[in-house]
Computed example of a mutant assay.
Amino acid sequence: MFENSENKNITIYGETVKPGEDKWIKIPIDRLPTGTMIDIPIYVFNAGKPGPTLLVQGGLHGDEINGVEIIRRMLFEGCYKIKSGAVIVLPLLNIFGFIHFSRQVPDGKDVNRSFPGVKNGSLAARIAYQVTYEVLPQVDFGIDLHTGGGQRNNHPQIRYTSGMPESKTLAEVFNAPFYFATSLISKSFRKAAHNRKIPIIVYEGGESMRFDEYAIREGIQGILNVMKYAGMIHTIDPMWIEREGSTLLTSHKWLRSPTAGMFVPQVLNGSSMKKGAILGFVTDTFATYCKEIKAPYNGFVFCINNQAVVNQGDALFHVGK
């Protein structure tokens, strides 16, 4: 995948990082109502030896904090001190959502539905514009870090782009517990990268506004696996133990609530399931009914909704085989 990689300067927002240099770059986006300027912080680690350029991005959705912690921890531990190539790190893209405990920016728009962006558009469009035109031109491949939305907890998993072999290879190398192909969403970051023929894998682990140590450690392990595969590092700290292999899911579906009530799961996230097994149930507060949620086939549960009170049609389990 990286045969033609060359040593190069990386230029973002008018600042150049030469081979052998590390630099912290800030892209100004907007001000808070108090007048405080908000910048997108970008770390660039450009090794002296030639190699590919990796993008590691967190906080595209402001309330998905596990990715932010994955990147912070790797920065603190010096994990991006690479031997070859370059790593561009966006620890927290949607700062406005982060400080408002929100998936979106303050006007309600989703940055991940705003690509490729507009230079003088809405706040979400302007953030997307800077990533599309300042960051993506420098990148050969990338890892986008996410969690489940709301109170849906995603067991660590990688999503890759259908029909893009490079993306699938990266998913296999990352070696999360599960990986599967998903279609591209209009105006998403991954679609914008795909239009530039840049393979992006999406890591999902945990749920919004809640640290999940297992998901954080799996995310760090996966990023290190990819960096080693790309020749950026030679060894991985032995505390990160490699598993035998990731499980490819060739089909998946959501199991939804048949009625409103209280949802009580009966299985652990990430566990296997047998067709017909009871995964959980939805009941009312007066014990007048109890609707069982059963496994549709032999497979795995890789997302569970932690919301205790649900409405009819709410997604309860994401399952695959």
Score class of each variant (00 low, 15 high):
E6A: 13
H234G: 14
R103H: 09
L54F: 00
Q130S: 15
Q157T: 14
K119N: 06
I143C: 08
E3A: 14
T169I: 15
G62N: 05
K23L: 12
F302W: 11
K109P: 00
T169L: 15
D212M: 03
D140H: 11
G35W: 00
P33R: 01
F2R: 07
N4T: 12
G320A: 06
G276K: 08
I278A: 14
K191T: 15
R196Y: 04
D284C: 09
E213W: 05
Y133D: 03
N112S: 08
G149I: 10
K18M: 11
V68I: 15
D30P: 00
V202K: 05
K274A: 13
P116T: 07
G299Y: 01
G58M: 11
R256A: 10
L224G: 02
G142W: 08
S122W: 12
L316I: 02
W24Y: 11
P265F: 10
V139C: 05
I201Y: 02
D107S: 12
D140E: 09
E204M: 08
L90C: 07
V202Q: 08
S84A: 15
H252M: 12
G299S: 11
D144L: 02
V226L: 07
E218F: 07
G320Q: 06
V89Y: 00
S271Q: 13
D39S: 10
G163Q: 04
R243E: 12
T34D: 04
D284S: 06
I38F: 05
K168G: 06
V282W: 11
N269D: 15
L55Q: 05
S251A: 13
T250L: 09
F45W: 04
K23T: 07
L279N: 00
